[in-house]
């Protein structure tokens, strides 16, 4: 393995895997994180910097790969938002789940996928607006607009949940 790419892999594999695992679950992340580095190597000509700056580029590739198959992410969010229904099964699948996690999962599930990509690259990947625009290949204005809309939807959804009586919450979680 060329030394530079080995450094990129060593430095960023955990971060890329962690981002994907939060979005699509560990099993899917094992596969997608591996694909991310294979694609990154194939596209290394498009990256002209040192390894310390590779993280946004890699997260962009990971996000694009994830967008090819949204089912894993959707299943994970479904499971998390329904965890009250069969807690034992859910805990085995996704680990322990707090009440806040259930609500956030339901709110994230309700977002448009393109908005979710921008939101999570920002919130979890800690990418700047400019970096998101670059790695997703979308205009900066679109990043702003998608992020604002995602936050508005989340806030409205979470406020609804917080204000809802228990019976309404149960119904809402049948997703």
């Amino acid at each position: 393995m060329p030394q530079a790419f080995e450094a990129i892999f060593d430095r960023h594999f955990d971060a890329v895997h962690g981002y994907l695992a939060r979005r699509a679950g560990r099993e899917r992340a094992d596969d997608l994180a591996s694909q991310t580095f294979v694609v990154a190597f194939a596209r290394r000509a498009t990256f002209r910097s040192d390894a310390s700056d590779a993280r946004p580029w890699l997260l962009g590739i990971a996000t694009n790969l994830l967008s090819n198959d949204r089912r894993a992410e959707r299943r994970l969010l479904e499971t998390l938002s329904r965890v009250r229904g069969d807690a034992r099964v859910a805990v085995v699948q996704v680990g322990s789940v707090g009440e806040s996690d259930r609500d956030v999962a339901a709110a994230l599930a309700g977002l448009d996928p393109a908005q979710r990509d921008v939101l999570l690259l920002h919130a979890w990947g800690e990418l700047s607006y400019e970096e998101i625009a670059d790695v997703l290949g979308i205009p900066l204005g679109t990043v702003r607009s998608r992020l604002s809309r995602a936050r508005a939807s989340l806030q409205a959804e979470l406020e609804t949940v917080d204000a809802a009586p228990p019976i309404a919450r149960t119904q809402r979680e049948v997703w």
Partner: peptide, 12 residues
């Protein structure tokens, strides 16, 4: 709340 969501995902 989104930032804290699944933040404790273990290392690969």
């Amino acid at each position: 709340r989104v930032k804290e969501f699944r933040i404790s995902e273990p290392a690969p």
